[in-house]
């Protein structure tokens, strides 16, 4: 890659941050060039995020249908699955799975809700909320 080919396609980087690319200058020597981003990279990153968003919206649908508890929304929003969440919260996977059931979740003690809240960095009241459902 030559210095004048270093891409400057904003996307993932939205502000004045720049990342380092290695490029060859007119004398054939390598220099560290600043790049605002590259389109193929932005596309691949968008794809990864659309996958996460899809997961979130499907989860929200299931919560509205009464199949999952609001915990599932926060789990998806934080890009976690049952196994990762169970490691963070320190409960075994089965227990986390139970907490994803609306009937079980409704009866959880505040101390347990607090533990989940701490992981997602939110208050307990927020833990009970999901977008579009009060």
């Amino acid at each position: 890659m030559k210095v004048n080919e270093v891409p400057q396609n904003k996307g993932m980087i939205t502000d004045d941050l720049r990342e380092i690319c290695y490029a060859v200058d007119e004398n054939g020597s390598y220099i560290l060039a600043k790049s605002a981003g590259w389109e193929p990279k932005n596309i691949a990153n968008d794809q990864a995020w659309s996958l996460i968003e899809e997961e979130i919206s499907q989860t929200v649908k299931k919560i509205k249908a009464g199949k999952l508890s609001p915990l599932a929304f926060h789990m998806a929003k934080n890009q976690m699955n049952v196994s990762l969440l169970s490691k963070y919260v320190g409960f075994n996977r089965l227990r986390v799975k139970l907490h994803l059931k609306p009937s079980v979740f409704r009866k959880l003690k505040p101390s347990i809700l607090k533990r989940y809240g701490r992981i997602f960095d939110i208050e307990v009241e927020e833990l009970l909320k999901i977008p579009g459902l009060e």
Binding site: M12, P40, K41, A44, A48
Partner: peptide, 16 residues
């Protein structure tokens, strides 16, 4: 394919 590209370019590789 997207995942391969991300590993190649996204996470601070300096390109390529």
């Amino acid at each position: 394919v997207g995942q391969v590209i991300r590993m190649q370019e996204e996470i601070g590789t300096g390109g390529g």
